[in-house]
Design a protein around this nucleic acid. Sequence first.
DNA 1: TTCTGAAAAGGACATTTGTCCCAAGCTCAA
DNA 2: TTGAGCTTGGGACAAATGTCCTTTTCAGAA
Lengths: 189, 189
Amino acid sequence: MIRINAELVAYTEQLFKKGGHGIMEESYGANELILEQNHRYTKIYVIREGIVKCFISDENGKDFIQEFLGEGLEFGELEVFNNRPAICSVASITPLKAFAISHASFNTLLETDMRFNRLIMKALADKIRYKAPRHSYQHAYPIEDNILKLKREFPEVTEIISKKDIANYIGVTQRSLNRALKELKEKSE
Amino acid sequence: MIRINAELVAYTEQLFKKGGHGIMEESYGANELILEQNHRYTKIYVIREGIVKCFISDENGKDFIQEFLGEGLEFGELEVFNNRPAICSVASITPLKAFAISHASFNTLLETDMRFNRLIMKALADKIRYKAPRHSYQHAYPIEDNILKLKREFPEVTEIISKKDIANYIGVTQRSLNRALKELKEKSE
DNA sequence: TTCTGAAAAGGACATTTGTCCCAAGCTCAA
DNA sequence: TTGAGCTTGGGACAAATGTCCTTTTCAGAA
């Protein structure tokens, strides 16, 4: 549920320490909005430490969480390839440390450093791979099964992530999530 | 709903004509299974002509259609970046012509041809961009709205794609799709 | 033409999920 | 310590969707 990418963060760290690649450090507190849907940005980010949520809000103010990103995951990168505003908002859940790379520097890295190029290519492929089964599973199975799956993959989920966010991730209302949680508890007694 | 990628197909065609890049031509009839979920393959494909569906089947035999791919879209490429079996099955809907490129040739192209590299990178980014709002929309709005949206984007949808496939794409049962279609018809009268 | 199997349409009922509330519990600042 | 505001939990009912079946339609094979 919260993926990490050890290779990408390690390599970015290496480039950062070497210097000369336009990689900067940034820090945020918990619950800060880092990118806002429909706005334009000129930097991409690689998480060093912490967790963010990446979500789409509709006109009624409902949020749908696309994914949670952990250490080594990048965001803001899609906008480099097609000159469009961001499709997702990104907000920190825990305090966050990240590397920020300007679009220009990112493009230079992609062109001149094939190791980096490959890591990003793989990261994009992983985002696609990861999303596909998730949405199909969420449609095909009742809420209870989705919760059980979540807890199996990530037992501390309810301690770190709010009920509201969990509901928005599964794509149900908080009411339905609560109902399902209650039934699970009753079954286990 | 059925995206195309004119740039990628044109450039692949160019490379194909030039020769020496290990690009082959393949053809399929309608309704043929081209890739099967959980199997391993050694080629990637770029569609020259026709439409395919890309779907995940669960253990109960339910299909969930991830996307329909049109001219210029690639498939089978995710498996190049992480050495895993296919996550989706791919089947032709119409008769299909495609370029096939072995993993080895594909890797060589990515490393030596930065134009190709960039086109693939952008194609991956587009797949992510495209999926995100779709799933969030499907969760947040009733079936009727999803059908209307589909018809707006792609009016001939019901002529080309079977009801079953449309239902599996929206993520509902055929019964529910029918109900919604009937209500729409009644409203418009 | 007639038959057959697949696709499409829909009736009846069960189940799930959402909506609209309100109440309880907790945190933080005045 | 008290009250404002957030998060969580849940009751009651409405609406959406699924399940199970049967019927209809239609294209292609015999």
